[in-house]
Design a protein around this nucleic acid. Structure first.
Lengths: 212, 212
DNA sequence: GTTAGAATCTAATACACTTTAGAAAAATAA
DNA sequence: TTATTTTTCTAAAGTGTATTAGATTCTAAC
């Protein structure tokens, strides 16, 4: 053929995305095992069997959803961090990373919720496909926190490992209680600033310290 | 009959608990829809059909697991808080509550993981059974945080609502990465102290503040 | 308008699931 | 021991599942 369309322009390419979106939405709400191919197909106006023209199995479909989830998060975080000055310090970096992560998981919540909710209750083989991307993203956080530990941007005695896990927890949990119908982008920024503020400064009144 | 045994002593009572434990373990690992009654029954040496002598349906079985999960968490937190002096301040209270919550979700992780992982992907009717207990527990946290806001134990401008949700996120997320085979009770206490420390004091070096 | 290829549907296979009813076995009481 | 109750099993019903193969329809190039 003479016309040379990119994947996103072909009919199959568009259908592929529609299916992926529907799958992410349903996986996030009902879990992997609680969602049937018939239901996914129905959401895009197809019959269950027709999905197999686009995906080779339900497991692969889930793999794609998980993979896209990580890609969305990491790229959003990177674009937020890229806005910073070159000489931005740890506090600015942490704030930007939290903001990016929250934008991703609260705006593309179908994908990220599918990832968060189903992680741990899907076959191990399904995980592997997105493991590299997940490691990459984790390494990014490890990296700038470790540097903060070395340069003294973090208080002596604060375990960087536990800090990262706690920040992740606070952020990811937001995808459970945040209601994207009631809230908007401004609210996301408010949450991001709050969490960065708390993890940097704590919640005690200025000048007060407890137990250190 | 003359003998008047308590429920836990009867054969049925013991079997009931065994089934509940097996169900919690499997629900936590594979999710509600990913776990079959056959699998649960097999874990206690029974046939799937026999479960119906003890439970009227799979949904009710899940309800019991969710209910026990909340009971375990709340009672553990209460017993930790009860150890405090009467005039204990907000910082002590928060630390004790975090410790109790973490003990519960990391020690009885089958039940609590089943609750956390399946929340949001099970039929609404299943939720309702444990909603009251959940509300009670949430009210406990709301209560002492609101009081801290009123008395100035929390810095001006810190939203108590977001603080509670962030603390919950950091704690509950621990159930995802914490490995009870590798770690022990001492590690749980370490995590609790770390999280209380971070939420109270932040991670910046002493004397430093950012953005306030 | 014809034709090749892309996209979807239909219908069936094979299997797993929850739940039920009644038989069987085990435990307890008389 | 015998009778009764409690507990478990067996077998089946009915429904839903992922997946496949082949027929069918739609799309786009010529």
């Amino acid at each position: 053929m003479l016309t040379n369309k990119t994947k996103a322009q072909t009919k199959a390419g568009k259908t592929y995305q529609l299916i992926l979106d529907a799958a992410a939405k349903l996986f996030s709400k009902q879990g992997y095992h609680g969602t049937s191919l018939k239901e996914i197909a129905s959401n895009v106006g197809m019959q269950a069997g027709s999905l197999y023209y686009h995906f080779e199995s339900k497991e692969v479909l889930m793999q794609e959803v998980l993979d896209k989830s990580i890609q969305l998060i990491y790229s959003t975080v990177q674009s937020e961090v890229a806005k910073l000055d070159k000489q931005a310090g740890f506090a600015e970096l942490l704030t930007a990373a939290i903001h990016g992560h929250l934008i991703a998981i609260l705006s593309y919540s179908d994908y990220t919720l599918a990832s968060i909710r189903n992680y741990g209750q899907i076959p191990a083989a399904v995980h592997k496909a997105s493991q590299f991307a997940r490691d990459d993203y984790e390494q990014f956080w490890r990296g700038f926190i470790q540097q903060a530990e070395r340069t003294g941007a973090i208080r002596e005695g604060v375990d960087g490992h536990l800090l990262r896990l706690s920040v992740f927890g606070a952020m990811n949990w937001a995808s459970v209680w945040f209601d994207s119908k009631e809230n908007n982008a401004a609210d996301v920024e408010k949450i991001a600033k709050f969490q960065a503020n708390i993890f940097l400064n704590g919640c005690l009144p200025e000048g007060e310290k407890y137990g250190i």
